[in-house]
């Protein structure tokens, strides 16, 4: 019994943390340009398919495939700014126009993937450990996959913290997020910090896609539907502005899911977790993991 609970904590929290990563994509854009990117989750699908192509189809090895996938995703993020965000803004478009454009973009990517790869899911190579790899820790079996998810997310969060708090570009990014006009008066090129936010937003979600692919396969599910919504939900729990709260929000969501499956039924899983989310939104719209932070 206790073992079941611990087991579920381990798996729920790791999947949840990847939802949190998807949520970070939302947060990084909201912080700087106050826009919601409805194609946020597309980066997860693109990350997974790119990695699949580089690793399985082109045999490039884990490290090169990973770096190449992330590199392409980063360029894609820059492209989003240059070809979608800026043109809309320059022609006087506001939030709604950006929402509609990205909503269409999300569908565009799903269909492009079907054209290029076909609609059937593809197996993701067991780069994070096969289904039978695990380590035992006091009676609980921790699958290597989950362990690796924790590891990657921990490294990523330390890296993000370092960039935002210890480098001048990161501090400029935070300054521009707090006051664009004053940032420009400091000599900060707001275009650069906006680019950085698009790149960070797409890259974290791309990495989330690669981490989720062993569970969901390399499939269209990574490009829309419930994972994207869970990412948004995590971001909302973090008040749309707190990156660390967003990861915590994702983890809570993952735990909630796993425990509803364990104690009630997997059929009701999403019904229960989304009911809780709606309740949270009604009771505390500013997010429950949105503490007055000392630092973003």
């Amino acid at each position: 019994m206790l073992q079941d609970i611990l087991q579920n904590i381990v798996s729920g929290a790791s999947i949840g943390a990847t939802y949190g990563l998807v949520g970070l994509g939302v947060v990084f854009l909201w912080l700087t340009i106050s826009r919601i990117n409805f194609a946020n989750i597309s980066s997860a699908m693109l990350g997974a398919y790119l990695f699949y192509s580089f690793y399985t189809q082109l045999n490039l090895g884990f490290f090169i495939s990973f770096v190449l996938s992330i590199g392409v995703i980063a360029l894609y993020g820059l492209g989003l700014r240059v070809f979608i965000y800026e043109p809309i803004r320059k022609r006087g478009g506001g939030r709604l126009e950006f929402v509609v454009a990205t909503l269409m973009l999300c569908t565009f990517w799903l269909n492009l993937i079907i054209v290029v790869y076909g609609a059937l899911p593809k197996p993701f190579p067991p780069v994070f450990g096969g289904s039978n790899d695990f380590i035992s820790l006091g009676g609980i079996r921790i699958p290597s996959l989950y362990l690796n998810i924790y590891l990657v997310i921990a490294i990523l969060m330390v890296f993000i913290y370092f960039i935002l708090n210890k480098t001048l570009i990161g501090k400029s990014f935070r300054a521009a997020a707090q006051n664009r006009e004053a940032a420009a008066l400091m000599g900060i090129d707001v275009k650069v910090t906006t680019s950085l936010s698009f790149i960070m937003a797409t890259v974290v979600v791309g990495i989330a896609g690669i981490l989720l692919a062993p569970i969901y396969f390399v499939s269209l599910e990574l490009g829309g539907g419930s994972i994207g919504v869970k990412g948004f939900a995590s971001a909302v729990l973090g008040g749309l502005t707190n990156p660390y709260g967003t990861i915590l929000g994702g983890i809570s969501l993952g735990l909630l899911e796993n425990f509803s499956t364990l104690y009630i039924s997997s059929t009701y899983r999403d019904i229960i977790s989304f009911s809780v989310l709606v309740a949270v939104l009604i009771l505390k719209p500013s997010g429950i993991f949105n503490w007055k932070r000392k630092k973003i």
Binding site: K171, R174, A175, Q178, N179, E181, A182, A183, L185, R293, K295, I296
Partner: peptide
Amino acid sequence: GRQVFPEL
């Protein structure tokens, strides 16, 4: 109005 960055 100063315009300092409040959360820096």
